[in-house]
Simulated assay, not measured.
Amino acid sequence: MREGGGLEIATILDEILSEGGYEIVNAFINSSPWARPGRHIVPRGGVIHWTGNIGRGANAWANRNYFDSLRDNYASAHTVGDDTTILAALPCLNEEVEMAYHVGAASYRTSYFGAYPNASTLGHEMCVNADGNFRESYKRAVWVMANWCFQFGWDADSAVMRHYDVTGKPCPLPFTDVVHDNRHCAALGFTEAQTAWIRDHLHIDGLLGEALWRAYKSDVADLTVILREGGLTMLQQLVQKMEELQARNSELENRFNQLEKALYLSQIPDWAADSVQCAVQKGLIDTPEGGSYDFYRTLTILHRNGTL
């Protein structure tokens, strides 16, 4: 948690941990020379992308299916995530990692991933569809990258890059300061209205451009540390224990309600009728029905010994 104006504000990491992380669903595309050539690789790092499609319906399944349909263009990514779902379009979470076509170019800005980065990196596509929730999509992008850092032993500071860092392509656009340049955004094909929408909606707590990229790297690094220290496993166990306690509490509450109902009688017992009538006449009670067995028993004893 961080403080803001005297209030505690939940951070991205708080939200991810409170939700126990996210499932990565295998939805492998078919083998093809355009998107899944079947080449096994040993990944040295991860590359974050955005789909660049802000249209409604451009979610994880739509992008996964786009890769699967390609017949004349090379493109794919290992995972695609929107605000509810993370899909693995290619194997990427075990020793059988396959190459995707996500970061190819005629030349590269870094030599960290070798001469052909596709052969040594994993790629995640972050959905930005208008009918989605960017914060949720962002959180899943953090989760995927931290899991890869944990699984493959990468250093998040050096092994996690943007598409922009590898080839110079402004991707993810919200993670680069190009997002603030109207002419550049227009050159990418966005109208003024679309550019304004991107700036208004594709930020995290007001962070956009390079500031958002630094925040993303920090979120990935911090979550990687937690995963390595087993913190998430402990959290998941705690959440499970809390759920068990809540279920037990609900069960006990139901049993108590049943017992309480059993104690109260819907009608006045015949043996207590005279005692109840006496109590009513003396103004001691005004609601004679619905009392418990002990209530009627006490009235009867008091009445019979002359106390009432």
Rank of each mutant, 00 (worst) to 15 (best):
G20K: 08
P269Y: 08
S32C: 11
Q151M: 15
L7R: 12
A89P: 00
R39A: 12
E125L: 15
T51V: 11
N305V: 04
Q194L: 05
S31C: 05
V47D: 00
F67N: 02
K139N: 07
D83W: 09
P174R: 00
A100H: 04
G57W: 08
L93S: 14
D222N: 15
A27L: 13
A10N: 10
F113E: 05
G45S: 02
Y264G: 05
L202V: 06
Y164S: 04
V220S: 01
D131K: 10
C278D: 15
I301N: 08
L13N: 07
F150R: 10
Q258C: 03
S218Y: 14
T167W: 02
S18V: 06
M234Y: 14
G291R: 02
V97H: 06
M126E: 01
G46A: 14
E15R: 15
A77Q: 10
R135L: 08
P43R: 07
L232S: 00
G45R: 05
N30W: 02
D219C: 06
G168I: 12
A159R: 03
T110D: 07
H201N: 15
V42G: 07
R162C: 07
I48M: 09
A262L: 07
N65P: 00
M234V: 11
F134K: 02
G4I: 03
A156K: 01
F150A: 12
R140K: 12
M99V: 08
S31R: 13
T287R: 13
G306T: 07
T191F: 13
H184W: 09
V25A: 11
D155F: 05
E260P: 02
S266P: 00
L173T: 03
S158E: 14
M161S: 10
S158C: 12
V239Q: 10
L302P: 00
R248A: 15
A115N: 12
T51A: 07
M234W: 15
R39D: 06
S120L: 06
R71D: 13
Q151V: 05
D270V: 11
V47F: 09
R162D: 01
F67G: 03
E96Q: 14
H184S: 11
A130D: 08
P37E: 11
S76P: 00
G132F: 14
W143E: 01
Y164E: 07
G57A: 09
G168A: 12
L238E: 10
E125T: 06
E210P: 01
P172C: 08
E19Q: 12
I29M: 08
Y22D: 01
L7D: 11
I86L: 05
A119H: 05
V239G: 02
A193I: 06
H102L: 03
F175Q: 00
G290F: 06
E3L: 13
A77F: 09
D157A: 15
L122N: 06
W61D: 10
G306L: 10
R228V: 04
L245K: 13
E8W: 14
A75Q: 15
D222Y: 11
L223H: 00
I29D: 04
L299N: 02
T85K: 10
V166T: 02
M161D: 08
L87P: 00
P117I: 09
H102G: 11
D286T: 15
A35G: 06
H40G: 03
E23C: 03
T195C: 09
N257K: 12
A196V: 09
A105H: 11
Y22V: 09
Y138S: 03
R109E: 13
I41D: 03
